[in-house]
Design a protein around this nucleic acid. Structure first.
Lengths: 206, 206, 206, 206
DNA sequence: AATGAATGAGGGTTCATTCAT
DNA sequence: CATGAATGAACCCTCATTCAT
């Protein structure tokens, strides 16, 4: 068994990664439930089934947990977010796909997104990192998609940066309303997607 | 000076109200700047020019300051928010006015809104009160306006609750993006209003 | 009673100074007994009869207590230390007086000196401040006194900086031996002074 | 290779002793640099190139490292310290030799001496052991040397215990001043020895 | 014998709240 | 009503020690 040590090491490394993963998920859940500041490191350790000190074998500080969660969110590849789609798709399909992909992204990451969002307006460092890693790439991708579609004649000419922010704001706003506990949104996302797309593409004029 | 006591009392009451007001504004500013938990009662007292103990003559607790700020926000009459407008206005003007009014509302209350929003996802009690006092009335007003306009034939028939949430989410999302420090939004609100209204009313089809 | 507020304020200030004083003395005693690191802020608070948080109304940190103790030690005027004596006194009397004054200084400040000395070799910042505020002025004063006496012909010419360090080292060394618990020193300081002075002034030659 | 196991064992034992030695030296260096409490077992393990747990295969506890260092210091034979010299040497040579030997002892062991001294006033157990193993033998040896020289008529009669403490205090005091960072002492030890010996033997009278 | 992840008691410090003045 | 010193529970984090591998 010449590769036993390698395997052992790998297993250890994998265990360590798993443990870090689990801590991060537990922390995200608690941050989402009661906010970053109302969650103590003791809470996290207990919920993760480890000792408090163990947290610090994986993360430098409580803040590092927050940044770790943000890092996890930014790992999602752009395609999965509907940010880079096939440009040949027509505009309606693009919007529909975009909102669906973001919905399934949210379904997978709701807790982590809420953990971050619950602290983001109160934490300048987090805000900055969110900008760099999440928001700016997202806006850029939307702007690219829009300009491609305008060039392709799929949609009419419009103020691209403003439109990108408009689109991003829809998703952010819907997330906020859902996180605030509005019962309709989670259940009826389909209706929202349909209505939203329809309002943008078909106008609300009678 | 037989009425001096009365006057004094009255002045005192006014002074008291003013002081509570000032404390609330100072607190909102600090909460918005650095978040609720990073702001200490000592910070607030110093910034307001009073002793720490004095805060407790006006508010029961630090939490009460937060609820006080929320209360102030909910005092704004609906008309000012563009929630109840003259139904005779056409749809385009309705949307434009709505967004403008909400903008000037935000200009007046940005700090208080940010103070509340920065904590709202982390504080269940606050969330509940926000629902009752702010969000639900707002959604209801939009729904009413929409159904009135649909009935009047100004806009086509659509899923009213979903559309209301869509509209609210735009405003919430734009606020978040602005609060996150996006430079475009604050400066170019006009463009955003125009683009948004245009996208909803004119469709993005070429 | 037009000066009541003034008196009240003064009394408060005096109380505050007294309290700070007492905390410092208690801390010095505990530091001397069991060392800086083995003394907890809880220990200090309990021994001082206050809550732990109260310590921080008077001192910024546990370290600040140590520096506060050092500051107290450096307040002692030079005359009291026998550093600046009447130069007309003859050399024997100078040495005797010097050692006696340092002894009575030590009797008054033993605990504080031990508190500082027990940490000084382990704490670079403290060491630096001790140099500036205690050791260097002391060495300078001895050097001045020696050169004055050499000029006056009271003692023969010698290597002044070396001699000053020699004299300082006697006191420091005797303090260390006493602090180490040697029973002789504290009880028989007179004999030590006499022997030391005699060895320096009369030579040990038969 | 029938004796391989024996050799291996022997080599292992030697390796073990070497490793304990190295750990001790590394620990002494770190204790001297930043004090006992500011040095973590992790620091020591890293600096020694072993795992933290390995320390505990060689020493029972962190405290045991300190006592181990003390033990190393007390291994130095008395002659090397100038404690037991040939009594026929005259007094001046005795003092000069004593100070020179202690200097070269210090040159070899400065780090270990500082490691011990930095903690000694804060650690009752260490203090006691230092007394037993270092200070008392030293004082006794000086007292013996003095009484031998008095009997031999090399020096005049004097208070022997006091004189022994005086002599010990010189060395301790000079060490402290050096450890405090005084620049003169280390460089100019020769001058100090000369001045000190001269002051004791020739008197400072003009 | 060597490892280093896990442990958890204990540390220094903060801060919302109280209350005597 | 205003004050601000006092409070002490609770926080985040450290680190000597253990033990399964």
């Amino acid at each position: 068994m010449p590769n036993l040590p390698v395997n052992t090491l790998t297993r250890r490394e994998r265990q360590a990664a798993d443990r870090a993963e689990e801590i991060l998920e537990v922390a995200a859940r608690l941050f989402a439930e009661r906010g970053f500041h109302r969650t103590t490191t003791k809470d996290i350790a207990e919920a993760a089934g480890v000792a408090e000190g163990t947290l610090y074998n994986y993360f430098d500080s409580k803040d590092a947990l927050l940044f770790g969660i943000l890092g996890r969110l930014s790992e999602t590849p752009q395609e999965e977010l509907g940010l880079s789609g096939p440009p040949q798709a027509d505009a309606r399909q693009y919007f529909t796909t975009l909102l669906h992909r973001r919905r399934s992204y949210l379904d997978k990451n709701f807790v982590m997104v809420q953990a971050i969002m619950s602290e983001i307006l109160a934490n300048a460092g987090l805000r900055e990192r969110y900008h760099e890693q999440i928001l700016d790439p997202w806006l850029e991708a939307i702007e690219t998609a829009l300009s491609q579609r305008i060039e392709a004649g799929q949609i009419r000419s419009l103020d691209i940066p403003a439109a990108a922010r408009f689109i991003a704001s829809i998703w952010l706003g819907l997330f906020i309303i859902e996180a605030l506990g509005d019962p309709l949104i989670h259940i009826e996302w389909e209706r929202l997607v349909e209505t939203t797309t329809s309002m943008i593409l078909d106008s609300v004029a009678p």
